[in-house]
Structure formats: C-alpha cells, structure tokens
C-alpha cells in the first residue's frame, strides 16, 4: 500500500497541483515540471508498483498516449491550416492533420480488433481498456451530434459543415455498432455490449456529479458575496485632483504636447 501511495497516488495528486501552480502564474515552469513528472510516474507505475491493481489505469494512459498525441496534432493542423486570423499554418497542414486524425482513429480501432490491444499482467487485456473504448465512442458520437445540430441551428449557412459532423457522429456510432457485433482481438462483443451500459452510466453519472459540484460551488460563492456589506462611497475628489485630471484630459484632447 505504501509503495502504491509513493509511486502512483502521490504522483497522481501532483498532476493537478502542478497544473494549478502553472495556471495561477505563481511558479509556471516548476508547476509544468511537477505535472509532467507526476504524469510520467503515473504512466510507468505498472513497472514501479506492479502489485497494485490501480496502476492498470496508468498503464492504459501510457498505451493510448501515441494515438492521443497524434489526434491532438491532427486537430491542431486541421484547425490552424484553415482560415484563422492568427497562428495560421501552411494549407498542407489541413491534409496532414486530417490524415493524422484518421490514423489515430484507425490505431484505436486496431487496438480493439488487432493484436495491439493494451496488455497488462500475464498477457491479459488491461481491464480499463474495455472502460475507455465504449466511453470514448459513445461520448464522441454524442458530442459530434450536438455540434452538428448546433452548427445547423445557430450557424449562418453552415449546412454542409453540419452534415460533415453528422457523418462523423454516424461513423463513431458505426464503430460502436461494429464492436457490439464483432469480437475484438482480446475482448468479445458480449463484453463490449455489457460495458456499453456501464459507459452510458459512467457518462451520465460524471456529468451529473460535475454539475452538482459546480452548483454547490456557485451556491457557496453566491451566499458569501450576498453576506458582504455594500461598499462605502469614496470621498469626492479634491480641487487638486480635479485640476490634475483636467490637465491630463486637455493634453490628450488638444495634443498641445505634440
């Protein structure tokens, strides 16, 4: 238990702490370093504490790191290869980005249907793979569908883009349907169908839990702000302050100093 705490749980806690320090600007580089070291330690925890079952989560993160980075690279290329006012890339970045996105999705599919399924102890499939895969497919299907409807209803003449997003949603649903029908390399379609229920429960549960936490936070802040006394009126400006402001305004409006 102590080894698991040192090599898995403490590094896992270091990740958000590092991100907090980095974002708050108090220790940007140290915060980033702490977060990255924490993440690396979590990912290699299946070697540092092989006896802990929790390390399967870290092992899965390491297994999906390459396709995830490829996906992020692809998204960056396709977005910034288009008509953006700042940070515009070469137009070829759009094609390479699209290829990177397709390749990353293909790798995820091969991880399910081919021999590159993440394996954990004794050649057994990582137990969290069958949690990750249906959750990813269900959530991607749902979000793409929302994006398609949002573009069609709020956008101006965005029907073609909306149809493309609807196609993405249907494609992700198609992959999920294929996994429900055809066995994977290391997992059966029956297992996938079972975990589809659990993935749906996971998605709804996580959204409800996060919403409740944000609502509690909003209530706490609202109650605190409501309890504060009204700010006192500041005293009127003195003659000297008024003269100073008037002279500043004159300089800017009249341009006498230029």
């Amino acid at each position: 238990m102590l080894e698991a705490a040192i090599w898995f749980w403490i590094p896992l806690c270091l990740v958000p702490v590092g991100i907090w320090f980095s974002i708050s600007g108090k220790a940007k580089s140290v915060g980033k370093l702490v977060a990255v070291i924490g993440l690396i330690l979590v990912m290699v925890s299946s070697w540092t504490v092989p006896s802990s079952d929790s390390t399967a989560g870290g092992h899965l993160l390491l297994s999906i790191l390459a396709p995830s980075l490829l996906l992020a690279y692809g998204v960056h290329g396709t977005v910034f290869g288009g008509n953006v006012p700042v940070g515009r890339l070469d137009s070829s970045a759009r094609w390479s980005g699209a290829m990177a996105i397709l390749t990353s999705l293909l790798i995820f599919c091969l991880m399910h249907w081919y021999s590159i399924t993440p394996l954990w102890r004794d050649g057994e499939v990582n137990p969290y793979w069958i949690v990750f895969w249906p959750t990813f497919l269900l959530f991607a299907t749902s979000l793409s569908s929302v994006a398609a409807v949002a573009l069609a209803s709020y956008g101006d003449n965005r029907l073609n883009e909306s149809i493309s997003l609807a196609v993405l949603s249907v494609a992700m649903a198609g992959i999920a349907l294929a996994a429900m029908i055809f066995d994977g390399y290391m997992t059966t379609s029956n297992e996938f169908r079972d975990y589809l229920w659990l993935a749906a429960a996971d998605i709804f549960g996580t959204i409800v839990g996060i919403s409740l936490a944000i609502a509690a936070f909003a209530i706490v802040i609202w109650a605190y702000e409501n309890s504060l006394p009204l700010p006192e009126n500041s005293p009127p400006p003195t003659e000297e302050e008024i003269k100073h402001v008037v002279s500043l305004a004159k300089n800017h409006i009249g341009g006498e100093e230029e």
Partner: peptide
C-alpha cells in the same frame, strides 16, 4: 480513465467542429 476517454472524445468532436468552421 473515463475522464480521459471523454476528454479525447471532446478533443475530436470540438476540434473537427472548428476545423469545419
């Protein structure tokens, strides 16, 4: 794990949406 799955799915869906726009 499920949060990572949802974050990656969001990256894909939101990224492709902006790519389309």
């Amino acid at each position: 794990v499920s949060g990572t799955a949802m974050a990656l799915a969001s990256l894909l869906a939101i990224g492709v949406t902006f790519a389309m726009i």
